Amino acid sequence: MSTLPISLQAQRTTLALPILVGGGVAGLLDMTSAYITFGRFMPIGIAGGIVGAAGRHVSVGQYILGLSIHYFIAFSAAAVYCVASKKLEFLREHFIVCGLFYGIAVFLVMQLVVLPLSAYHAMGPYQYRGMVEGLLAHMVLIGLPISICLRMLSPLNR
């Protein structure tokens, strides 16, 4: 009898904790930053990216939809980084630099792919201050927490 299937299943589940904690922390930090910057109705604005003009009407459903979308993106970003780290070991070894650069990558995907495809069709022109604040926020509040959680919680590092 072989233990290979057990070890393969264990390898698949090793990233669940870093993905959940990293995505949760990054989502919480980014949402806190968005609340401070844009106000308490920021989740309504996020929901408007899917529902369009109907997103201007404040409702509990819209609020929950916005929070759900926000955390889905945060957990997806964490999952991409953690899964990529299985093949690209330098993501775990040089986690601070890679986390900062991953934050830049997440920011660029949001600005150049997600927002133009949303119902807002946001494509600029961008203000310099907003770009710098967005880059720094994504670097420190999204990329870095995800990489640190992977480094601290992944059994691949032990």
Results as ranks from 00 to 15, higher is better:
Arg151Ile: 13
Met110Asp: 03
Ala105Lys: 03
Phe75Val: 14
Leu29Met: 12
Val58Arg: 08
His70Ile: 09
Val83Ser: 07
Met152Val: 14
Gly124Gln: 00
Glu133Met: 15
Pro5Ser: 08
Ala137Ile: 08
Met110Cys: 05
Met139Lys: 12
Gly27Ile: 13
Arg129Trp: 01
Cys98Glu: 11
Arg56Ser: 14
Phe41Leu: 13
Val114Trp: 02
Ser33Thr: 11
Pro116Phe: 02
Val21Cys: 01
Gly99Tyr: 12
Phe38Tyr: 13
Phe41Lys: 10
Ser33Met: 15
Gly49Phe: 10
Arg151Thr: 14
Leu20Gln: 04
Leu88Arg: 10
Val83Asp: 14
Gly55Asp: 06
Gln127Asp: 13
Tyr81Asn: 06
His70Trp: 05
Ser7Val: 06
Ala78Glu: 12
His138Asn: 15
Met123Pro: 01
Val58Asn: 10
Leu115Thr: 09
His57Cys: 05
Leu112Cys: 06
Val21Pro: 06
Gln62Asp: 10
Asn157Leu: 01
Ala16Trp: 15
Gln11Phe: 09
Ser33Val: 04
Ser2Phe: 04
Ala84Leu: 08
Met31Pro: 08
His138Gly: 09
Ala122Pro: 00
Thr14Ile: 02
Gly48Leu: 02
Cys82Pro: 05
Gly48Glu: 08
Thr14Arg: 13
Gly66His: 06
Ala122Leu: 03
Leu150Ile: 05
Ala54Leu: 08
Val51Phe: 00
Val132Ala: 14
Ile73Thr: 04
Leu8Thr: 00
Val106Pro: 01
Gly49Arg: 12
Gln127Lys: 12
Leu141Ala: 12
Pro18Asn: 02
Met152Ile: 13
